[in-house]
Amino acid sequence: MVIYGVGLLAGCMLVGLVTGDVLGTLLGIDANLGGVGIAMLLLILVTGILKQRGHLPESTEQGITFWNAMYIPIVVAMAASQNVAAAFSGGLVALLAGALAMALGLLLVPVLTGHRREPLPSGDASTTSPAPGRTH
């Protein structure tokens, strides 16, 4: 059932957030330390085990993949409900931070690649593009 997937997702989220909260309290910081990240790891782990044992039918999967696909639309809604008008005056920070991050990333590509080269397989790769819900 679809709700099993949604329930599993919700369960992972709650466990992750509680763990993050406890971590924050332990370290004396008034914030949730990595709760979302912990929940992501938990979801990968739990669904991996369930799938291996054949306990993850397609209908259950749909409960998770629906929210996966809703991710960019939700991000758009989030962007639309931020205090952009106030941020506008400081927009140069965003421009420079984003540009510098991109430039440094591109510059490091040849450094990390080294000299070894692998040939590129022929054929069209458009069929193996990432799922639309995973664009971030």
Binding site: L41, V76, A77, S81, G133, R134
Partner: peptide
């Protein structure tokens, strides 16, 4: 939009993107 893009649904959707990794 505040509810749809708020922390609750946003975090749920972000965690869901980990599925399949």
């Amino acid at each position: 939009l505040g509810l749809m893009g708020g922390g609750m649904l946003r975090d749920l959707a972000i965690i869901a993107t980990a599925y399949g990794v």
